[in-house]
Design a protein around this nucleic acid. Sequence first.
DNA 1: GTGAAAGCGCTAACAG
DNA 2: CTGTTAGCGCTTTCAC
Lengths: 359, 359
Amino acid sequence: MARRKQAVTIRHVAAEAGVSLQTVSRVINNEANVRAETKERVQAAIDRLGYVPSIAAQRMSGSRSYLILAVNDRTRTIADWQARQGTDWVDQMMLGGMLKCAEHGYRMIFELVDTHSDHVERELGAAIAALQPDGIILTPPHSDNPQIVDFLCEHGVPFVRIGSQRQDHGIPVSMDDEGSARIATNHLIAHGHRRIGFIAGPSDYELSGWRVDGWRAAMAAAGLDTAGLLDAGDFSHASGRAAALRLLDPPERPTAIIASNDQMAVATLEVARELGLVVPDDLSIISFDNTPIVQFAQPPLTAIDQSIAATASLAVELIIASLKGDPAPDQSPPEPPQPDQLHVVPATLIPRASVAARG
Amino acid sequence: MARRKQAVTIRHVAAEAGVSLQTVSRVINNEANVRAETKERVQAAIDRLGYVPSIAAQRMSGSRSYLILAVNDRTRTIADWQARQGTDWVDQMMLGGMLKCAEHGYRMIFELVDTHSDHVERELGAAIAALQPDGIILTPPHSDNPQIVDFLCEHGVPFVRIGSQRQDHGIPVSMDDEGSARIATNHLIAHGHRRIGFIAGPSDYELSGWRVDGWRAAMAAAGLDTAGLLDAGDFSHASGRAAALRLLDPPERPTAIIASNDQMAVATLEVARELGLVVPDDLSIISFDNTPIVQFAQPPLTAIDQSIAATASLAVELIIASLKGDPAPDQSPPEPPQPDQLHVVPATLIPRASVAARG
DNA sequence: GTGAAAGCGCTAACAG
DNA sequence: CTGTTAGCGCTTTCAC
């Protein structure tokens, strides 16, 4: 195996079927201008030889790479992996994204990129140049990083922005953050709660703001005050503890708290217990993300489930769809090709045991 | 950007530096026969232009693809993802494997393959033909699937067999299954246990047998009998329940049970509770895998931790090292591991609250 | 409808 | 030490 070559190439198939290379190519790419009978003969040869086209060669000749890049935040992703707390964001992305890719003959490649770095463009640029992916999926907080978004625009690579709502560039796919927060808040209101605290996420995630908006809107709609009921963390357990402590300190403390992610929700649960509060009797808790950890909490936490798998799957579909018309978008158009509607993947509330009715 | 081309190619760099393509290529691949001054000039041009070689083109010209394929069992992996029980095998592989790949300019691509299928070869063959990876990492149960192993041998692609001990083909990397089981068993023996039950894994995983071997050896070394103390499951919760029930039925029931994975350990815990047994007072439990779930069990489970991250990292290193023979790039050879001895990644026991001393 | 050319970006094999 | 010449496997023009 000195100089590794393709075992069976398009040439072999052409010879086997007694046609030219182009004809085989046309059959592979399901193009027109091939007689049914010829097509059949070529297909038979392909099957007989077990031929599979080399994506490197396909890419070389100006065609697709059949690669889709999924970009996640390096620091947070590695931290999650090392913590071994069961955070399964990446797994759910693979479940939805990889499988959908496979359906269409694509492959998904994971890439870790730092958000807060001055060489973001170099990192991403290198990946694009090396891999030449047909599309890119951005996840929070990258989805709303203008540096990254502008860079991808210039490059003309189609990209989806998961968890974003900005329709200026790329294809945004909202995970319904505002709606989710509203659902959670209304769930508590329906259980008789009136002082509902909210622990927001960090501000470099735009979704943090949307969730606050949803909570505010639901509270306002019910004629409830939000003064002193908002705090924030950075998604870490420690920051969740601190926020919960502040929220639960005043005598007029909230009877329920919504935390913007599971780590902070579990921290809130912990703090409540330390303060002698029984969950859910003294304090109800609703969590965001619904990672495995909340099922094992005592009590199991009611949580908002935003399907990452469904979102990733949709993202892949949207990218492939955007590729369909032209083998490559002609130029980088200043305006989006399709003023499509904003895609929203609905979230659901999973009721567990951390919410109780309130007089 | 009609026909998507590389923005900046080796040609631009050559022009910029005033040298030939070949010289640039030599610099890229860190080959000899380039004057320091020339090399510097080329490198400057590369940096200035932000040039990154296209791996598709590199692959086309008979060089590497810089892709390493990580192959996992389709059915089990998807089931784990969907179950959302916190199983983080894939995450740990990425943590160890992807990061190590990145260090060397490689990329890891995940591929799901069915083991029990007559078209395994077609599946794998297609992936190999399409991607032309420089190496493949096999995980259980693929690592000991002769069909797969033989197929890869024929293809001449270097491959690592994670969790395998067979030295006939490929590079086996043992996760010390026998040793792990011995450690767990001895831990219990040291705590005074004498009737130590063992729930084995399914037989299509060779590691299942090795773990039984380790348990048997440790028991024998301590002069303990194993009659009626061995049962088996298929790694599922349900099968774990069944096995635990059978093991705990006789009046002379074991005072401790080692389960071959976390799902079955948790199932054992559940059964124990249903039988009115207190863990660890009436029954001690040790689990294999140490996925997040065991930390959240009540009580938290003492577990054997086989570092998948370390194993995947080593696997990548071994593959890249085995590639060194070829005239290909390298920056700093950090003492590549010997490719001919059996590599064993040591496992450790993580003590938690599910083991108690016994008379 | 089909086939013959001309590369894509890069590297191996030879020159000089 | 450096440059030149062929391709790698595939898809594009463009002929027929």
